[in-house]
């Protein structure tokens, strides 16, 4: 079972001898094949949560487990899609996707098969030999997602993956991610500050507060989505028009706005 468990996770940073608590009492279980989005104001520690699951950072208290094993370092079983893509600019699309597969010791024929499959799935056909700088932002992020997906990872960690894209591209990528997630469900931890994106993509939404970062509320989206059959609509704007969607979105918005009020005084 490829779940992600945060158990009493705490993260304290030291700056000039002053300690400040970035994350406190984080308890969360992302179930196998569940898509969980974490939303929160910037600086609430949501990215730190993802990075701890990736093994790129470590909790100062409690632990983070993936598939019941404590995370100690990064590895291909926990593939990350970074906000800034982090594609290797000196490698072609094909070689970028192949990079992780090579570490998995998959034989050459199998690697080729898997890369061809993911390239077709992500609509990257014809760009195999292109370099990242020759592609648009949306295409680059497709490559980054392909590079993560091709590893067939236990969990997929996405850190504001569409944050650097323009609005139109962003919508297309969101629709594609939904298509991909429904066709080929994975355990996903998705970090975003865009409320609509979270409501549209996630099974559950975790709303976080700032300073110290704690979990404010966990909202179940999946039951509503299935009850209202959102997936019959192919286009994001049709889903966004549904009263149930609007209601959820407003609810999440209010939770985030409450915190802004706290900041003001």
């Amino acid at each position: 079972m490829a779940n992600i468990q945060f158990q009493n996770v705490q993260r304290v940073f030291k700056q000039h001898d002053k300690e400040f608590v970035a994350l406190k009492d984080i308890n969360l279980v992302v179930q196998d094949r569940e898509f969980v989005a974490i939303v929160g104001p910037s600086g609430c520690g949501k990215t730190t949560c993802m990075r701890m699951a990736a093994g790129l950072e470590h909790p100062t208290g409690g632990d983070v487990r993936v598939a019941n094993e404590v995370v100690t370092r990064p590895g291909p079983d926990r593939a990350v899609v970074f906000q800034q893509f982090a594609l290797f600019p000196w490698k072609t699309v094909w070689d970028n996707i192949d990079f992780g597969l090579k570490s998995l010791k998959v034989d050459a024929a199998e690697r080729t098969r898997r890369i061809e499959q993911i390239i077709a799935l992500m609509g990257l056909g014809g760009y195999e030999q292109a370099f990242p700088h020759q592609l648009s932002g949306g295409m680059q992020q497709r490559v980054a997602i392909a590079r993560a997906y091709v590893l067939d990872p236990k969990v997929l960690l996405m850190d504001e993956p569409f944050g650097a894209l323009d609005a139109q591209t962003r919508v297309v990528m969101q629709e594609e991610l939904v298509r991909l997630a429904r066709k080929n469900p994975r355990t996903v931890l998705f970090i975003t500050h865009a409320v609509e994106e979270a409501v549209y993509l996630a099974d559950r939404i975790v709303v976080m507060t700032r300073r110290p970062g704690t979990i404010r509320e966990i909202i179940d989206v999946k039951s509503i989505r299935e009850a209202e059959d959102w997936d019959q609509h192919k286009r994001i704007e049709d889903v966004m028009d549904l009263p149930s969607f609007v209601h959820l979105r407003t609810h999440v918005w209010k939770l985030l706005r409450e915190q802004q009020g706290d900041d003001a005084h």
């Binding site: 990064p74 590895g75 970074f82 982090a86 990079f99 992780g100 570490s103």
Partner: peptide
């Protein structure tokens, strides 16, 4: 750093 992290995440030796 993002390239180093990507490399580690992708399991490179």
């Amino acid at each position: 750093r993002k390239y180093i992290e990507a490399s580690q995440m992708l399991g490179a030796s």
